[in-house]
Design a protein around this nucleic acid. Sequence first.
DNA 1: TGATCTATCGCAACCCAATAGCAAGCAAAT
DNA 2: ATTTGCTTGCTATTGGGTTGCGATAGATCA
Lengths: 147, 147
Amino acid sequence: MGTPIEQVRDEVKTLLRERGLRATAARIGVLEVLHEERLPMTHEKVMEHLPEGVHDKASVWRILSDLADSGLLRRMDLGDRVWRYELIDSCRAVTDDHSHFLCVDCGAVSCLPPLEIRARHGELPKALLGAQFQVRATGTCSNCLSD
Amino acid sequence: MGTPIEQVRDEVKTLLRERGLRATAARIGVLEVLHEERLPMTHEKVMEHLPEGVHDKASVWRILSDLADSGLLRRMDLGDRVWRYELIDSCRAVTDDHSHFLCVDCGAVSCLPPLEIRARHGELPKALLGAQFQVRATGTCSNCLSD
DNA sequence: TGATCTATCGCAACCCAATAGCAAGCAAAT
DNA sequence: ATTTGCTTGCTATTGGGTTGCGATAGATCA
């Protein structure tokens, strides 16, 4: 059935076409990068890993937000005012809306296990029951701690 | 003891001087606005409420971030990529580091009661024990729901 | 396989919140 | 009242993100 890379490429093409999007080289490249890293990446980081020939800032920005709109990527702001994108597929096993840990030192991002939120005293206000909660944890990761 | 407004002004001056900051008209104006609103405000919103004579965008930006650095304001990003500032003093009664709710419809911000976060299964990873958690809730506020 | 249609790309110019640099202004100490 | 140096206000710049538009190249059909 071809090499693992070809296999990923085929899966990615299918994903795109399923949503009525053309499977262009640029989109495939972006998705492959995200597939390989399996973590939320900034536009800048994605650019760094892109294959030769795909290097237009605006295009990659458009690709990232189009793919997020069509449900292939999750778009998030971890509080440092930079959008990050993550392949939804690679995290579906964890939880559909999981949280992240951002190392304030090196900027590394990691995924957190499923969390739950409660009021510390009494119950949550009713208006909040339908709200969407985003949790982010910031701190120093174990790598940076040992330096 | 003077009018309530004069009283606020005096308190604000004291707060500034306690941290070695000069009690200038611009800083006092910013703090008074924040004191009156008692909610996280964007730079833009602060500008709208400033008294005559304080009009410089860059200065207000500097004031806001200086005051945040010196611990008078809390600086936060509620996920819409705009900094908001809130008088720490005005919320001390609630909790020292509380969370916020942002209405995605009208943009109104409100404070949440103290929350606690747990892992849904098992325990939190040890690395997270020293981390700082920020929770933000987004949704539709009761005002907008009834429209 | 080649023609055609049109989504997408690549380029360049632009937007805007946020910062930096610097001279003039003003609060505070003497 | 004078001096000192923190702050302001103006201007220029940065940096993440966006837009307009002609050119390119997937997808579809003959």
